[in-house]
Amino acid sequence: MNAQTRTEMRELSYAEAIREAMDIALASDDRVILMGEDIGVYGGAFQVTGDLVEKYGTDRVMDTPISELGGAGVAVGAALTGLKPIFEFQFSDFAALAMEQIVNQAAKVRYMLGGSVSVPLVMRFPAGSGTGAAAQHSQSIEAWLGHVPGLKVVQPSTPEDVKGMLLAALEDPDPVMIFEHKILYKMKGHVPEGHYTTPIGKAAIRRAGKDLTIVATSLMVHKALAAAETLGPEGIDVEVIDLRTIRPMDRETVLASVRKTGRLICVYEGVKTLGVGAEISAMVAESDAFDFLDAPIVRLGGAECPIPYNPELEKAVVPQVPDILDAARNLAEGRI
């Protein structure tokens, strides 16, 4: 019991939790390698790999040249032939350079070859705005990859989940894309010790409520929870669902909540149009849960522009707590 109590108490940052997961994986499976730009002695652009190179050497914690396309392709080839690479993009934005290998190769090889191979590849994407890094270092492109059959796309929102989902991804025979919001890296939270997995494709109900459902992803989960705390005393009882995986999406958890509350807000940082919220909304509209909707669905997503540099503009173009409060009040009080 004491040991367990200590485990319960232990807190790590989100970045530390990722590092711990990779440490466990490297220690337990020789086939696991880390690849990425400046992940060795530099420790990664966000210090996620940290000192792992000292422990496992440059053969297993490999600095790649600044060659996103080639590097991603090498990871695909290695995954096809017996290794389990964890490939880090320095910023998720740079994945645009590697789309060919992610979308045309990693995602499709298994299918194109009639199921005779699999690609046990993990890719990590530091994502999102809020760091003043402007348009080419702040995007949320998870929906791009969420559109590709053959990939699994996750957005863990807590230190506990990111460790568990990374370890689950390593056990998964198919390519798993992990989007890590950069603002979350320093967030601390309870993280169990040792090896455990958090299921891919399963959402988490972070707060139960009866009046309206907020389905949020990544950093937005925390904003939704903050909004829910404000709304509670106002008599608006919000259920907050952390979607966690955008492909495959957890239909049942979302639909069950909407059946209960009849009202739905989707909150996500990616550009609103044709994004994760569109998929959640359509999923509800196409299901029997449609009959339980008692108001229009509301989407809060990123503005229709690149992420701007000016800090006030940067805040304004992605959903913030007051935006969620407004939407929830309007919805609960029958104004929309």
Binding site: G73, V74, A75, G77, A78, P85, E100, Q101, Q105
Partner: peptide, 19 residues
């Protein structure tokens, strides 16, 4: 994809070396 197999071949060689 023209050029699609090049990095994959390098990855296969990486596996061979590593394993």
């Amino acid at each position: 994809i023209v050029g699609g197999g090049l990095p994959i071949a390098v990855g296969a060689a990486l596996s061979a070396k590593r394993l």
